[in-house]
């Protein structure tokens, strides 16, 4: 797949503060690209620059093969934004909100009407066409927010935490919509603080911290960057040093320690759990519970940035 979005050496400063520092990444056509970072990492600034809501100091950005600075109008026509904050006119109905924003992209007449109804159906709001935005629940407003961003069928959809504060049903509806958008050929840049969402929906992920790119790649590639071990945790009473040494000597076991629970670090493909359990049983050690913690994005993120995601 070709790159649909190309960001090269992007730098954005606010006075002495550098919000984005020499950032480079590509988003392939028709992929869902996750953008992760702690608060203040520069995610929103990067998205705002791509959407031409704010200027930038250095670098080059192209969307769909068009340079953002030289062909701004064309680039803008390719993008649909679903902002983090709900951006709707409270006293306008669902139809009127979508129709207004779609009209700004040149749609009119029957084409406009058809696009609006299609967008509302897409997000599951066909029954609320005449309902005012202020009368809708938070989840419905989020879906309407999405409808306003996609009605004009943009090639690139930028979604800034589209599911924040919504109920699980609405979240599921939104996730279904995003999958459909991808199937329909849209390229999506998606930011979220909710790791399971990112893992579920994104093809590739970029981790940004302090305005710089910490890492990017598929989930598997990112996990491998940080660690190739998993931790086996066994709930049992304190055990003899002799048993610990036995476990340490087992092939592929990297580290063993006991701190209220027995924790054993092993490679991701370790298959000797039954040997460990047998050793414990043979020595009369009762086992209450066993758990395996494989590395995940959360731990990867923490390892790469040193920060919690929230």
């Amino acid at each position: 797949m070709d790159n649909f979005v190309s960001v090269s050496k992007l730098t954005k400063r606010y006075g002495d503060f550098t919000a984005v520092d020499n950032l480079s990444f590509e988003v392939k056509e028709r992929e869902v690209f996750g953008f992760l970072g702690p608060n203040g990492a520069g995610k929103s600034t990067t998205l705002h620059v791509i959407c031409n809501l704010t200027g930038f100091d250095k670098g080059e950005i192209s969307v769909g093969g068009h340079d953002l600075r030289r062909e701004t109008r064309i680039v803008k026509s390719l993008i649909g934004l679903v902002p983090q904050e709900i951006a709707l006119y409270p006293t306008l109905s669902a139809y009127e909100n979508v129709a207004f924003f779609a009209s700004l992209y040149g749609l009119s007449g029957r084409a406009l009407k058809s696009a609006v109804l299609e967008a509302l159906e897409f997000v599951g709001l066909s029954d609320c066409v005449k309902k005012r935005a202020e009368k809708m629940s938070g989840g419905m407003q989020r879906r309407l927010n999405i409808a306003c961003g996609i009605a004009h069928k943009p090639k690139l959809i930028v979604m800034d935490e589209p599911t924040v504060g919504v109920d699980p049903q609405s979240r599921e509806q939104i996730m279904r919509s995003i999958r459909k958008l991808r199937e329909n050929g849209a390229t999506i840049i998606y930011t979220s603080h909710y790791m399971p969402e990112v893992q579920e929906i994104c093809d590739r992920i970029a981790i940004i911290d302090g305005g710089r790119l910490a890492a990017s790649g598929t989930e598997e590639e990112l996990l491998k960057m940080v660690t190739d071990v998993k931790t086996i945790t066994i709930d049992c009473p304190k055990i003899d040093e002799k048993i610990i040494n036995f476990i340490v000597d087992l092939p592929d076991v990297k580290r063993v320690k006991y701190q209220e629970k027995l924790k054993i670090e092993v490679p991701l493909r370790f298959t000797g759990i039954s040997t460990i359990l047998q050793a414990l049983v043979d020595n009369g050690v009762p086992v209450d519970n066993l758990k395996t913690d494989a590395p995940n994005l959360e731990t990867t993120f923490l390892a790469l940035t040193g920060k919690e995601l929230r």
Binding site: N52, K76, L81, L88, Y89, Y105
Partner: peptide, 14 residues
């Protein structure tokens, strides 16, 4: 306040 200013400004309309 509604957030619609940004959304409107990023459209292709000048």
């Amino acid at each position: 306040k509604n957030g619609t200013l940004s959304r409107t400004a990023m459209s292709p309309k000048s």
